[in-house]
Amino acid sequence: MLPELIEKQYFSTPDLLASMQNAMYHSPLDPSSYDLLCRRLRGQLVELCQKSKAPHLASALSAVELLAALFGNVLNITATDLSGTDRDRFILSKGHAAALAYAVLFEFGFITKEQLDSYAKPESKLGEQPIPGALPLMEVATGSLGHGLPVGLGMALASKIKRIPYRVFVLMSDGECNEGTVWEAAMMAPAKKLDNLVAIIDFNKWQATGRSEEIMQLSPLKAKWEAFGWSAHEIDGHNLSEILGVLTKVPDGTGRPIAVIAHTTKGKGISFMEDDNNWHYRIPTDEEVITAKKELKLL
């Protein structure tokens, strides 16, 4: 389906506007709202994973603050300019964290509770990995790693060709940086001076079956991106002020694309999941859901 059609279908319905007006959170978000938003997102994730039996919970938990910040104070997306061609683009290149994107879309009113609850169920458009054009603001289907950055590069290039100034934010995983296409795009973007392209790496130190650093030599990631010609930053990916400090200054005036290496903890926020890679695939039991929600002060 063509993007214009997607926008017509999803971005102009009165339901959506109403849903956004009634949403708990609106952009720009007050800094004091992030604590509750992030706890709510983590609670949603644990419940969605338990109900759907769909894996990758820990991979979603590590990126909660990053996505919250993007939707809270970075992306120039509001109810009135959803169909605008100049709105910022977001690509969830680590498609296995789709549940997190859905939870964020729900909190900001882009989808309803009913839609969110349909996650991974038969006939739902909320697949375990994003389905193209199924939801507002998620036009790119991902799941196979290493696709988001090249596609984002194309969108950023289109902004330059059409002289319409928007930014493109691509969220990747550290395991994803194993893929050669990431580095192909990393070489091309600075050569074309795409200062409107941002690669965010959720560096949670684990990939599906082991420690990232033991599988592929990722470090030094910041130096690598710098060497490829990017403005590279290393931040604490759970610290909102550090995240916003970088992501609210795009373009940064250097003429270069921006790489953000966000140090995170896989399974962040739930004590018995933190840095335990079993939770890449494990599904929490009913009891574990309750324990997690108590830890998150949601019960």
Binding site: T85, E139, P150, G154, L157, G180, E184
Partner: peptide
């Protein structure tokens, strides 16, 4: 870098 070229093409196409 053919793979990146195709991905780039997708991004361009999604942008009209």
């Amino acid at each position: 870098a053919e793979a990146n070229m195709i991905g780039t093409a997708a991004g361009l196409s999604m942008s009209g």
